[in-house]
Design a binder for these strands. Structure first.
Lengths: 352, 352
DNA sequence: CGCATTGCTGCAAACGATTGCAGTATTGGC
DNA sequence: GCCAATACTGCAATCGTTTGCAGCAATGCG
């Protein structure tokens, strides 16, 4: 096949071990041989075989990243960040996509473990806590974005409660009183926390929480569309909608367009998470940015830390929070109390 | 560490080689020992160490996928398809992201080769042909989506010329005569081919090709926006725009919104490649689908074929084409010859 | 009953690197 | 000039598997 250490050693007329030591920079060889071997290795195009090395050292230089999908922009940037960071450190990323399916997650975890990854970053479904805990005895693991309640693994989370709070407060400050929210399933941490942030902001402003304005559901455009319709059909429809569930946004936008409503004139819209087309959409959509790249970076940091401090299982902190950031664009405007009912009108395109 | 073959052999009171043969399903062991060993292995939780196996067999069971980014929806689905297909075959995908940067591509290629991947699917930048050719002697490689002119590696391409032809003809059939096109850089195969399909369709319909209607540039929203502005500012602006460059679409949509133009009433819009929000956008945007998942599937097929038929370098076909598909939605309508100039009007929302 | 065939099984050598231990120059001190 | 210390270098074992070859029992045939 390719050039092995043996070939280099042969060419340099030294033993394999000397060659290994010289190239490995162990400092146990003379300056001269080291330089000579480096030169010869380069000339021959020698590149160490990580498989053989791995067998001896017990490391694969591979790190697994397990996400739900790639359609979600947050996962995209996380994947890109993780791959870039790891690459710089000589690791390679093994990217796996397990949907939101616990069975598939479990299988994939097995595959990853089989491949002897040196570390693992997982966005858990939440249904494989025991499995993850068991695996954590073999491999350093860090959970990302979601908490798996079945385990106490180190977890890097977005501060969803704070994010939703900040977003809701922004809308309140603009004068909105009836604020609809479309949020993720209550059996996910993010769903629960975003909802709690919303409620907290309302309470703080002494606004009555109206259950009719709260819609929780799966992460799909269809669900978002359905929720949006219900909100708009209310006798007293909201003047602002906070779509705190990224995937639902597409559906919401469609319904708004269908009804001929104009943003932000007829309705203020605030969304969650970053997506390239939120910026380019007209009007540009204001968002609460959950800081996907910060999350990914922190997860890598923590994983690296764990991989270094091998073995010492318990080191205090088990949960890290990354702050959310409000990005104001053009989809929210101060509440205008002039009577305007649901989808009836669609006037006012005049530039103010 | 974990359970090794030795442990299994010891527990079963057979030699390591017998254990290996029994579990490997070589058919060289008696039915009885085979079953016994399988049972014991399961009980002990034995899982073969791919690193050790790899060292012996020279295989890593890893396949590299090198793409430009993950923001492009086509790359997303390709990554998902490749990972799913490979997983089913016991391979794992090593996903690398090298932007459109030849240097980074070259580095990444090295990393991938170092990790001894069993195969490689590459979306080439086009600047590392020699490198790829050299690498192909060691590793089966299939190029995807783009052709690298510096090499004659097997390549799976979208039929971009056909796609652009079909799209353009569709617009012509709707009665459009002045059709603007925004297309990729002419130094990429896709850029050239899409343009050629456009020109072919026009010629076929005996429509004069007007260079002012053709904009080629980098794959970025900004470029798209700039091109779109120029098109709309023409003395005789187009009645339809074909954005045959996926990344540019965001910019185009923004400019259209900024000018208060309505699609498809004021302008027909046809885009290239699939993206989830094209469907959910109102009006839903018609596209020419390049068949990303077909492309990925075919690339995997070809790669597997190469990996089987190891060594025999030259087998006739070197280029595979995957047909494009026109997906009609709501962003194109028949040409209305009534005089309507640029951004002046924005009437007509009445449901037809 | 003897011998060749068949069917399993075990021994041992790989695969390509790392590393503890022992051996050999080289140097300096006395 | 001799010996100890120092500085390299080489031998060989090892990581967990696979696999060619040889050994050995059981079987069938004459």
């Amino acid at each position: 096949m390719s050039v092995t250490l043996k070939d280099v050693a042969l060419a340099a007329r030294v033993s394999i071990s000397t060659a290994s030591r010289a190239l490995g920079g162990s400092g146990l060889t003379s300056e001269r041989t080291q330089q000579r071997l480096t030169r010869i290795a380069r000339e021959l195009g020698y590149r160490p075989n990580p498989i053989a090395r791995g067998l001896k050292t017990g490391q694969s230089r591979l790190v697994g990243l397990l996400v739900h999908n790639l359609a979600n922009a947050s996962f995209q940037v996380m994947a890109e960040v993780v791959q870039a960071r790891l690459k710089a450190l000589g690791y390679q990323m093994l990217l796996c996509i397990a949907g939101d399916d616990p069975q598939l997650e479990s299988d994939t975890l097995t595959t990853l473990a089989d491949h002897r990854v040196d570390g693992l970053i997982v966005v858990p479904t939440g249904k494989n806590g025991a499995r993850l805990t068991a695996l954590a005895n073999e491999i350093p693991i860090v959970c990302l974005v979601r908490r798996d309640d079945g385990t106490d693994l180190e977890t890097v989370l977005a501060d969803d409660s704070e994010g939703a709070y900040v977003g809701t407060r922004y809308l309140i400050e603009l004068g909105h009183r009836r604020i609809g929210i479309i949020v993720g399933r209550p059996d996910t941490t993010s769903g629960r926390e975003r909802l709690s942030g919303y409620v907290r902001a309302l309470r703080e402003a002494s606004i009555q929480v109206d259950d009719a304005l709260i819609h929780a559901g799966h992460f799909e455009p269809e669900t978002g569309a359905a929720s949006c319709r219900k909100l708009l059909d209310l006798a007293e429809p909201p003047s602002a909608i906070f779509v705190a569930n990224h995937e639902a946004t597409l559906g919401v936008l469609r319904v708004i367009a269908e009804r001929g409503l104009s943003i932000p004139d007829d309705l203020s819209l605030l969304c969650y998470e970053h997506s390239p087309w939120f910026e380019w959409h007209r009007p540009a959509i204001s968002i609460v940015d959950n800081g996907a790249s910060d999350l990914a970076n922190l997860a890598v940091d923590r994983l690296l830390h764990r991989m270094d401090a091998k073995g010492n299982g318990a080191d205090g902190v088990r949960e890290y929070r990354v702050g959310a950031r409000l990005v104001k664009r053009d989809s929210c405007r101060p509440f205008d109390p002039s009577p305007r009912k649901s989808s009836a009108t669609k006037s006012s395109r005049a530039k103010a």
